[in-house]
Design a protein around this nucleic acid. Structure first.
Length: 612
RNA sequence: GCCGAUGUAGCUCAGUGGUAGAGCAUUCGAUUCGUAAUCGAACGGUCGGCGGUUCAAAUCCGCUCAUCGGCUCCA
């Protein structure tokens, strides 16, 4: 990819609408049918392959096969060729309703054990879809009427990946072939164009190009190092949130990165969360055997609890809102790490609120209000709210059923009071309590949890937390865990992609760069830069001996929001010729503006989270 | 952790068994220049690491580390 192509991050409105499968009945049919055609092609070319499941997904389909040898890129091409042949044979797609016994018998005849297992879970009516008299598969449909209704030029196989049978890592690992299919070749082309574009706004790529963060093999996987520019992003975001929190009665605290393992035994982390923690640091073998020593903290809550417990608390002190940008370490599986969205060390904009049971509902609403306000300032609109409840069948949780029901009830009341759209995620709860999570998508359309609010009756119990109530009795507070950003790392990853690297002025690591037409104008540029810095602005002067066009090109590549050209006429009139970068790699030449006006305009834009 | 792919200069990449290449970046020189690349030169790599096969390995084999695409898991 040439450097100039890198700049073209188009942001024009979508000319061709590309619906998700769930939005389009015809795409459902197309993608169901293509996945059958693919499975048939695979079994034709690889007779040892056994079929399992093959559903449609948002922008295509996949099918999982059990096959002794891995499929290669070459195999994909051959499979695609075979698919075209099948399509061209104009096979009718015939639906047949069968009895359970009949289905069982037929599956046994073709020796497909996975299909048999699928059948066990199916409800009547059981339907089979035939491709002519060549091939059939258990499927609920819907399907096209004939393979020739598919447009071979609108279909493409994309990749092969390992996938466990039924998503269970203790079961067989299958090979999943991903593909995409559309109504028209134009849609396919547009889909591919958008994938290219997504690659260009990938935060890993932009983070490197813009010099925001690095990874070092010597430091370790999943442990980002923040450069000066990236650190500005972090501290601006931290300051921003701290200001918001100050207004709402939060108190900032600082706690260590490690603690005795006993602390986490009391909280239950050691029992329920150990596989996500870095191993115990024991002083000697005896200590290791006795499970005594220190661990890196995977969460901040037990520390904030210690601060709460350090004094006898009165109901008058509640809600007590302890906040910290707390860096935590979690031992994520190596295969899961990626960029800033999944790391092993990250900073949570954490807060723990200790409230009376009576205060719980109101305080929960306050927190959601804060989170939504934060998203608004960051111009993040595209998210979903998830009620993350426990899976009652699992034993990975602590606490009584009653505590869980109370906590889940509080969250449900809150979202209903607010009239929020939400969906439920069973089994998504934290081990100590249910959550309300805010889910975002990255450029590659993967979903990530950012903000979260959690209601917790369990840790107050385990740590025996108390406050003195109005009547003089000791009562137990309820805890709210909350993090609007979720993690600074993940948030910044999402922001980079959301803005395609074009940060709004208040966040931009470099807000302005002064470009002297030649060296004679350097002193004036330095003088203006100093003035800007004294107003708290982040500004650079291009001291290279490059010609103006090159300086502009470099500033554009660095995505500097305000470029200020300084030459003879500017010095004479004490002005700056402003070239403003606007999202999408266009920029406006605003002409000469008096220095004082530029400063004023920048100041206002920054204060209001606007662009210049 | 598992399946698969990838790893060559700071960056992006070419190089399929016979002494390591390009563009950009960097440095130096010339140019003093008005809104997306001025010209020239130099510098720069134990080809991710370790081991093996071979007269000879960036290239073939094994192990390992890291990255990428998925699976499981999570902020």
């Amino acid at each position: 990819m040439s450097a100039s192509a890198l700049q073209d991050l188009p942001q024009q409105p979508d000319k061709i609408h590309l619906p998700r499968t769930s939005e389009s009945e015809s795409l459902k049919k197309i993608r169901h049918t293509v996945s059958h055609v693919m499975a048939m092609a695979v079994q034709k070319l690889f007779p040892k392959a056994q079929v399992t499941i093959g559903p449609w997904i948002d922008y295509g389909f996949y099918y999982d096969f059990d096959h002794p040898e891995p499929f290669t890129e070459k195999d994909l091409k051959a499979i695609q060729k075979e698919m075209i042949k099948i399509i061209n044979r104009k096979l009718p797609v015939i639906r047949e309703e069968v009895s359970r016994e009949d289905a069982q018998k037929r599956i046994q005849e073709i020796n497909e054990p996975y299909k048999l297992e699928i059948l066990e879970g199916l409800e009547e009516p059981i339907t089979i879809y035939h491709l002519g008299d060549q091939w059939w598969d258990l499927c609920a449909g819907p399907h096209l009427e004939n393979t020739s209704d598919l447009n071979p030029k609108a279909i493409e196989l994309e990749s092969v990946a390992g996938a466990y049978w039924r998503g269970d890592e203790t079961k067989a690992q299958l090979q999943r072939i991903y593909g995409t299919a559309w109504e028209t070749p134009e849609q396919l082309a547009e889909y591919k164009r958008r994938k290219e574009e997504a690659l260009r706004r990938d935060h890993r790529r932009l983070g490197k190009e813009l010099g925001l963060f690095i990874f070092s093999d010597s430091v370790g996987p999943g442990l980002p190092l923040w450069t000066p520019k990236g650190t500005i992003l972090r501290s601006v975001l931290e300051d921003f949130l701290q200001q918001e929190q100050l207004k709402r009665g939060y108190q900032q605290v600082v706690t260590p990165h490690i603690a005795r393992v006993d602390l986490f035994k009391t909280s239950g982390h050691w029992q329920k969360y150990q596989e996500d923690m870095f191993p115990l640091m024991a002083e000697d073998e005896q200590a290791a055997a006795a499970e005594q020593g220190f661990v890196l903290k995977p969460m901040n809550c037990p520390f904030h609890i210690q601060i709460y417990k350090s004094d006898l608390r009165s109901y008058r002190e509640l809600p007590m809102r302890l906040a910290e940008f707390g860096t935590v370490y979690r031992y994520e599986q190596s295969g899961e790490l990626g960029g800033l969205t999944r790391v092993r060390g990250f900073t949570v904009d954490d807060s723990h609120l200790f409230v009376t049971p009576e205060q719980l509902d109101a305080e929960f609403l306050n927190v959601v209000d804060l989170i939504l306000a934060v998203f608004k300032s960051l111009q993040l609109k595209d998210f979903k709210a998830r009620l993350s409840f426990r899976d009652p069948a699992s034993d990975k949780y602590i606490g009584s059923d009653e505590a869980w029901q109370k906590a889940e009830g509080a969250i449900r009341r809150a979202v209903e009071t607010l009239g929020m759209n939400y969906f439920e995620g069973i089994g998504e709860a934290a081990f100590y309590g249910p959550k309300l999570d805010f889910i975002f998508r990255d450029a590659l359309d993967r979903e990530w949890q950012l903000g979260t609010v959690q209601v917790d009756y369990n840790l107050p119990e385990r740590f025996n937390l108390e406050y003195v109530a109005e009547d003089g009795t000791r009562k137990r507070p309820v805890m709210i865990h909350r993090a609007p950003f979720g993690s600074l790392e993940r948030l910044i990853g999402i922001l980079i992609e959301e803005y395609a690297g074009d940060f709004p002025l208040w966040l931009a690591p470099v807000q302005a760069r002064l470009l002297p037409v030649n060296e004679d104008f350097l002193p004036f540029a330095q003088e203006v830069a100093a003035k800007m810095r004294s107003l708290g602005m982040r500004v650079e002067v291009d001291t290279s001996k490059e010609r103006l066009p090159k300086q502009i090109r470099n500033a554009e590549k660095d995505k500097i929001p305000v470029m200020a050209v300084v030459g003879g006429k500017e010095v004479e009139s004490n002005s700056l010729s402003i070239r403003r970068r606007v999202a999408g790699n266009k920029s406006d030449d605003l002409g000469a503006i008096p220095v004082a006006d530029v400063l004023e305009r920048m100041k206002n834009a920054i204060a209001n989270y606007n662009n210049f």
